[in-house]
Design a protein around this nucleic acid. Structure first.
Lengths: 120, 120
DNA sequence: TTGACATGTTATAATTTTATAACATTATAG
DNA sequence: CTATAATGTTATAAAATTATAACATGTCAA
């Protein structure tokens, strides 16, 4: 699987609020599928399972099978990775653009601290 | 528009390799739609425009109209914002999990520097 | 003014995603 | 062993996305 494939899967997985909600729920401790559905009463169990499989394909959820239970664990490493390799550079680009705007707005204030970064 | 709406739009926009490619192309200097299509010969002009509108809705592309030309600028600020508020915390979570694994692997090495954070 | 260039709009087909329903499988408690 | 709890599978419908085609509009240059 190429990096592009991985980014497609990851961003697509993050691109639905129900899936982000699932990640939030299992962030601090894993949950069985049943426990997850018990919390998300507004969403059908099958739908939850489909979302879980999308998250699993993106590598964000790791499944541990215990008897008849399925424990869904968060694995945030793909998020860390995409931050490092993709998001981070773009965020840095945004900051440097802000810096250029600053420079344009106050061309002779070179001693001043970069306001945009300060607000980060 | 809520934050969830914004994240939906942003992650969805990033979830297609053609759109990420467009962002890469206009990252360092804006391009007209025509110039963009001239570079992406493998993709139909209409398709490129549809992708541009998805990027525009996500706030990643800002359009400057000059005569009959449409100049597409990158605005990476939404990426910076989502990194700060969403991606960053999850990436940090990943790192802290790595830290816990480290601790498990070497329980008595408490004086050692946290390797995972060092590599961040 | 007019022809051609750059872009925009509308329509449509194919594909993918999302949500549910109905039924199937597996494992545990009693 | 067997009823039931937990999960899985298959099927299907509705909605959204992606890719193209055909046609429309606006603008510049001669």
């Amino acid at each position: 699987m190429s990096n592009e494939d991985r980014y497609d899967a990851l961003f697509k997985a993050l691109g639905h609020r129900v899936r982000r909600r699932i990640l939030d729920i299992i962030k601090d401790q894993p949950k069985t599928t049943g426990a997850l559905c018990a919390v998300m009463t507004d969403i059908d169990r099958c739908t939850v399972m489909q979302h879980l499989s999308v998250l699993e394909k993106a590598g964000l959820v790791v499944v541990e099978r215990r008897g008849r239970e399925r424990w869904n664990h968060l694995d945030a490493l793909p998020i860390y990775d995409v931050q490092k390799r993709w998001i981070g550079p773009y965020a840095a680009h945004a900051i440097s653009m802000l810096g250029e705007l600053e420079a344009l707005a106050a061309p002779d204030a070179s001693a001043q601290a970069p306001v945009a970064v300060k607000n980060a």
